[in-house]
Amino acid sequence: MKAFKGFNADLTCRGFQYEEGKTYEHDGNVALCSGGFHAVLLPLDVVNYYKPKDSVYHEVELEDVAPSRDGDSKVAARKITVGAKIGIPGLVKAHVEAVWASVKKPSEKVTATTGDYAHAATTGDYAHAATTGDSAHAATTGDSAHAATTGDYANAATTGDYAHAATTGDYAHAATTGRYAHAATTGRYAHAATTGDSAHAATTGRSAHAATTGRYANAATTGYSAHVRSSVKDEGSIAAVLGHGAAAGALGCWIVLTERDDNLNILDVQAFKVDGKKVKANTFYQLVGGKLEVAS
């Protein structure tokens, strides 16, 4: 199982020394917070445990994983293989892909519509709602229940914990209010928003915005002229722009900025902590010529 793990800068974790490329096996009981090797399945959950300032992150491969969960995507395993180092931009990109994949998994409880202007709604736990027509909405209120839309102007919303919302059409929005619930959009002018703790928002379309208000909640965009904001006063929250765009954050969080040329080739990627001095809180910034500038 592919996962992500944080370490101290010297590649130690709780006093244990790791090495990249090495495999380690735990002899005792495997359970969250008591035994085994711990990692997270959703990339950005790793910053809940290891803050960016003093940590390094690696992709890892897990074997014999304990089935229980501890709120977010943290798991424990008997065997771990330490893979390549991955930076904050890499975590963000991987997280966008992971969130999007999570809402596309099949379920035994699904309400689905295929016509334009057709809505789908569910209220039970673990029940999913999906629509494929334009201007069609999907909504769920139960825990672990997902909502997904593929048509233009179609919105997806969830209110339960661990419930994800995803849209692929232009002008289509995704929103979640529950804890550990993620929102993702891929269409142009499509917004993603989360309000729950440890809930992430991600967009990949042009001029698409992502915003989070919960603690330990991260926001990321990869589209052109896309804006991202984290309103959380916490070092565990990240607002990242991987395309052309700007990022803003509350005091204490981090912003990741990408500069690209007219052909969308990456020129530079930098991370900044919103310290209130060099980087002001709730102010949108962008990279220009490799330097931090207030966005116009």
Rank of each mutant, 00 (worst) to 15 (best):
K2H: 08
A3I: 05
G21M: 07
Y24C: 10
N29W: 06
V30C: 08
S34H: 14
G35F: 07
G36E: 08
H38L: 09
Y50C: 03
P52Y: 13
K53F: 09
D54K: 15
S55K: 04
H58P: 01
H58F: 06
E63V: 09
D70F: 15
I80P: 04
K85R: 12
P89D: 03
K93M: 12
A94N: 06
W100Q: 15
A101G: 10
K105H: 08
P106M: 11
T111G: 12
T113S: 15
T113Y: 14
G115C: 11
A118V: 13
T123Q: 11
T132V: 10
A145Y: 07
T150V: 07
G151V: 08
A154D: 05
A156Y: 05
Y162S: 11
A163C: 03
T167W: 00
A175Y: 02
A181E: 09
Y189W: 10
A193L: 09
H200R: 02
G205V: 01
A208S: 15
A210G: 09
T213I: 08
R215W: 07
Y216A: 04
A217D: 06
T221F: 01
S231N: 13
D234V: 00
S237K: 04
S237D: 04
V241W: 01
L251H: 10
C253L: 02
V256F: 01
T258N: 09
I266A: 05
A271V: 08
G276M: 06
A281N: 06
Q286W: 07
V294R: 06
